[in-house]
Amino acid sequence: MNVVVLLKQTFDTEEKIVVSNGAVSEDGVKFVINPYDEYAVEEAIRLKEESGANSVTVLSVGPARTAEALRTALAMGADEAVLIEDDRIPQDEYAVSVVLAAYLKQQSADVILGGNFSVDTGGSQVAVRLAETLGIPHVSSITKLTVSGGSASAERDAEGDLERVDVQLPAVFTAQQGLNEPRYPSLPGIMKAKKKPFKQLTLDDVGVSAGDLEAKTARQSLSLPPSRQAGQILSGDLASQAAKLVELLRTQSKAI
């Protein structure tokens, strides 16, 4: 059984967003493995440790800085990293999924794991698009995964309800919080990671022509949300504050 993890590098969730020249500024920003993808990496490593998976490959389409996130995944215990980096790939979920599909068609992946969504542009698209493009089933937002033989059982979070889903492999799964507790890379893990295979590929290597990747969407503008002002802190004993608040909600903000 071969496991592939789709990984995106994102801003740390504690980062503030600065817009400059119509784009999100990356100056001085701390980057991490997209938190949902980190669950996917952990789950893949566990499939190797506990369910006899042969190999774990972490795969990314992204800029050169993504190498750092892939190295972290290798240090956690993945076996091999693949970074498809090419300026001709538009930042569009359609294009990214086409590139991933082209690469994975040449591989034999039984389990493909990704995050439920990325905490930056948050489209929740790429993993499911990939499954459809490859013609294999998917189960999104999983909180449990058991693989045996040619099939898998997953528990899926559907807006708080829990669905138990059986699926034939190969299949794509996306990780939801609660799937596992990702490990930190160990020092020996970090040392070993330096010697693990790390492939850098371009569109030509994957066999996709730039003409097949025309973006389907375009950004027209980017702005920061209107900032909220601190309102009023109520005073008096707590019982009268509670009464005052309910009154303000009725009279001032007309919310009830």
Partner: peptide, 9 residues
């Protein structure tokens, strides 16, 4: 944290 406006091509 940011708002984007997008169009379809």
């Amino acid at each position: 944290k940011a708002i984007e406006k997008k169009t379809f091509l």
